[in-house]
Amino acid sequence: MQPIPTTEPVRLTGRLDPPPNRWLWLLKWLLAIPHYIVLIFLWIAVWVVTIIAFFAILFTARYPRPLFDFTVGVLRWSWRVGYYSYSVLGTDRYPPFTLAEREDYPATLSVVYPERLSRGLVLVKWWLLAIPHYLLGGAIAGSSYSGYRWMDDAAGRYGTPSLVGLLVLYVGLTLLFAGRYPRGIYDLLMGIQRWGYRVSCYVSLLTDRYPPFRLDQGGDEPAAGTRPVTPGAPNE
């Protein structure tokens, strides 16, 4: 197994807190309502910010830093709420009400600020170039997939039955009856969420790095600067 370079600008991590409570997951939809309400308004603001950023990039090739930090903060907040609730069920620690990174919280998300972005790509990457991801995301996440975000973390719901929804339900039932979190399911859910947030950052115009079609599973990102490659597998 050989490492090849990777320069992923989006870094998403999670730490599985052992052991999650057997029954608390049944109430998390209720406990997370304050976050859902705040996130609805924050995501409305993100849509406005993204439109402003679109024209800023088109004319200056730069994403205004305060607007960039705001959008990343909303994504980070959404990830913490999703990790706590029905995207992963990875922790029972209540998410903080903040856009800032909290290194002490078991779910983190960071995006490298790009000094310059392509004026040409900003015209097509959020719809045309992302179509393959939209199609695959719809198959995985069901009708809750909006074409802009991988999962409807802000609303905490799924539309039609989906792979992610079924996996999370299996996790909840396993917690309830066995008191444990299946590690293999956790790694898979983290891979799906990591992929999804890379797509979200790309279509939010935060990066020009095209999201790779792969699941980097597990709580941690691949080691800095490298990722493992199976012999005979094609390089990206």
Score class of each variant (00 low, 15 high):
residue 39 L to Q: 13
residue 140 I to F: 13
residue 11 R to N: 10
residue 63 Y to M: 06
residue 149 R to N: 11
residue 236 E to G: 06
residue 175 L to N: 01
residue 200 S to G: 01
residue 125 K to I: 02
residue 14 G to P: 05
residue 84 Y to C: 03
residue 112 V to Q: 14
residue 128 L to R: 01
residue 44 I to S: 10
residue 71 T to C: 11
residue 231 P to V: 01
residue 194 R to M: 00
residue 191 G to A: 08
residue 208 D to R: 08
residue 203 V to E: 09
residue 38 V to E: 00
residue 198 R to L: 06
residue 109 L to Q: 08
residue 229 V to A: 13
residue 184 G to L: 06
residue 56 A to T: 04
residue 236 E to W: 13
residue 219 G to M: 07
residue 14 G to W: 07
residue 177 F to Q: 06
residue 68 F to K: 08
residue 161 P to H: 10
residue 30 L to A: 14
residue 201 C to N: 03
residue 11 R to E: 12
residue 54 F to H: 05
residue 27 L to E: 04
residue 179 G to N: 01
residue 73 G to K: 10
residue 157 R to G: 11
residue 46 V to T: 11
residue 50 T to Q: 14
residue 179 G to V: 00
residue 61 A to D: 11
residue 85 S to N: 14
residue 164 V to F: 08
residue 1 M to H: 03
residue 9 P to S: 05
residue 45 A to F: 14
residue 125 K to T: 05
residue 133 H to N: 02
residue 39 L to D: 06
residue 40 I to L: 13
residue 234 P to D: 04
residue 24 L to W: 14
residue 215 L to W: 14
residue 95 P to N: 00
residue 212 P to A: 12
residue 210 Y to H: 07
residue 159 G to P: 01
residue 212 P to D: 13
residue 201 C to A: 15
residue 79 W to V: 01
residue 111 V to M: 07
residue 202 Y to E: 04
residue 221 E to I: 03
residue 49 V to M: 03
residue 44 I to G: 14
residue 172 G to C: 09
residue 35 H to R: 01
residue 106 P to W: 05
residue 227 R to I: 14
residue 104 D to M: 04
residue 193 Q to S: 15
residue 107 A to R: 04
residue 113 Y to W: 14
residue 41 F to N: 01
residue 49 V to R: 03
residue 32 A to D: 00
residue 19 P to F: 11
residue 80 R to T: 09
residue 186 Y to F: 15
residue 121 L to Y: 06
residue 170 Y to E: 07
residue 84 Y to Q: 05
residue 149 R to H: 14
residue 151 M to D: 13
residue 133 H to K: 03
residue 212 P to H: 12
residue 84 Y to S: 08
residue 148 Y to K: 11
residue 13 T to Y: 14
residue 97 F to W: 12
residue 58 L to V: 11
residue 143 S to N: 11
residue 5 P to Q: 08
residue 219 G to P: 04
residue 231 P to S: 02
residue 1 M to S: 09
residue 209 R to W: 10
residue 159 G to T: 10
residue 121 L to I: 04
residue 136 L to S: 08
residue 135 L to D: 08
residue 198 R to F: 06
residue 22 R to T: 13
residue 47 W to N: 03
residue 28 K to Y: 12
residue 46 V to S: 07
residue 143 S to F: 09
residue 167 L to G: 06
residue 15 R to S: 13
residue 81 V to P: 00
residue 57 I to V: 15
residue 125 K to Y: 02
residue 65 R to P: 08
residue 160 T to F: 10
residue 230 T to M: 10
residue 95 P to K: 05
residue 208 D to W: 02
residue 231 P to I: 05
residue 9 P to E: 08
residue 204 S to G: 11
residue 186 Y to R: 03
residue 179 G to R: 05
residue 136 L to T: 02
residue 96 P to A: 00
residue 52 I to F: 14
residue 52 I to C: 03
residue 100 A to I: 00
residue 55 F to H: 07
residue 155 A to G: 15
residue 29 W to D: 09
residue 110 S to R: 09
residue 223 A to S: 12
residue 230 T to S: 12
residue 214 R to Y: 13
residue 145 Y to Q: 15
residue 108 T to N: 11
residue 189 L to A: 12
residue 142 G to H: 02
residue 172 G to I: 05
residue 84 Y to V: 01
residue 152 D to H: 01
residue 33 I to T: 12
residue 128 L to W: 09
residue 150 W to L: 03
residue 24 L to Y: 13
residue 50 T to R: 13
residue 36 Y to M: 11
residue 155 A to H: 13
residue 97 F to S: 07
residue 59 F to P: 08
residue 26 L to Y: 12
residue 22 R to H: 14
residue 214 R to A: 12
residue 60 T to P: 10
